[in-house]
């Protein structure tokens, strides 16, 4: 098990280095001047220009610049936003809980509905239920979620007036950020109204963001389950006299979950990408919206840092999924 972990972790290092290399070269690949891109200043006088060139280390050979960059990364220094002059890392850390909260709820929704839907579709194969689940799931999978989000707003916010259109909480409530998670913070504040407000703000973004993972998980669960139900060991379990529930929930599901976990892991990346769209539409103050705004404002240090940090999170999530995969699949754990 330990060796397996070590090998997986070993694969992460080159991937991470590759991403730093990509992000580092970003600043040199953009059309125009690196000094202007990094400082956000245009048409500066030659004295300031050469001072900035030196300050950013741009007069050094590229490899020296890269190692400087890596060195700064290790110290947690990702530079400063051109627009706000705040450290990129601090901005990221302030905004990340909002994205995390949204992604977590979306994934929860996807799992709570997607897993049972997939299992039921597999058990009721070729029935109306199966066809409905598969049809809805294929539609969800093909759904442009930015449009889906708009439709949700159109129906629930504009027409029915049930939910707010944007933001994380009503501006009436001024909550001190304790954990950064609005649901938790509002509960801590003791105001029930605040919690309800936070919850109602969360509902539509959660549905919008959770739709694709839900569709993918339902599809994958169904096909994994169908495969597993044909296996000999399921017949053995039934021949042992186990109840139907036990055969399905313990013997079949445990095996079917192995491929599903991989897919769930991959969906975490999809969630972060989907957050870019969802957050923009719902004015959700998370890293997705932050990143898009930075691109529009040509705030390159933020773009660099945002991409690097999001990519690192995805890599870490994938690593933990690999570990989890080893835990639920004994064949990997022991044979390696």
């Amino acid at each position: 098990m330990f060796g397996f972990l070590l090998r997986r972790a070993g694969l992460v290092v080159p991937t991470f280095l590759g991403i730093t290399l990509l992000v580092f070269s970003l600043i040199h690949m953009i059309p125009g001047n690196a000094v202007e891109a990094l400082s956000g200043e245009h048409g500066m006088d030659p004295a300031r220009y050469s001072r900035l060139v030196h300050e950013f280390g741009l007069d050094q050979p590229l490899y020296v610049q890269y190692f400087d960059y890596l060195g700064k990364l290790l110290k947690g220094d990702l530079g400063f936003s051109i627009v706000t002059h705040e450290p990129v890392v601090r901005e990221f850390l302030t905004l990340f809980p909002a994205t995390l909260e949204l992604s977590f709820c979306a994934m929860l929704l996807a799992l709570i509905i997607g897993l049972p839907a997939g299992i039921l579709a597999a058990l009721k194969r070729n029935t109306f239920l199966d066809y409905s689940v598969m049809g809805v799931s294929l539609t969800g999978y093909s759904m442009p979620i930015f449009w889906w989000a708009l439709l949700l707003i159109l129906l629930f916010s504009v027409t029915l007036g049930w939910t707010p259109v944007s933001g994380r909480i009503d501006i009436l409530f001024d909550l001190p950020p304790v954990t950064g998670f609005m649901l938790v913070d509002s509960l801590l504040s003791g105001e029930l109204g605040a919690f309800r407000s936070a919850l109602s703000h969360l509902i539509l973004p959660t549905i919008a963001l959770g739709t694709i993972p839900l569709a993918v998980i339902a599809r994958m669960t169904r096909s994994a389950m169908l495969e597993v139900l044909r296996e000999d060991y399921v017949r053995t379990a039934r021949a042992k006299g186990l109840s139907r529930l036990r055969v399905i929930a313990i013997h079949a599901l445990r095996n079917a979950l192995i491929p599903v976990v991989t897919v769930i892991g991959l969906q975490v990346g999809t969630l972060l990408a989907g957050a870019i769209l969802t957050e923009t539409i719902f004015s959700w103050p998370g890293i997705g919206k932050w990143l898009v705004e930075a691109i529009h404002r040509r705030d390159y240090p933020v773009v660099q840092g945002g991409i690097l940090l999001s990519a690192s999170i995805i890599i870490l999530v994938n690593l933990s999924v690999d570990v989890l995969y080893g835990v639920i699949n004994p064949r990997i754990r022991r044979s390696s």
Partner: peptide, 22 residues
């Protein structure tokens, strides 16, 4: 390795990154 890195990033994030450059 390069392909793996690209696959590790979700498609829209990668596309956004490329557009940020270009």
């Amino acid at each position: 390795r390069l392909m793996d890195i690209m696959l590790a990033l979700p498609s829209l994030l990668l596309a956004v990154a490329v557009v940020a450059i270009l």
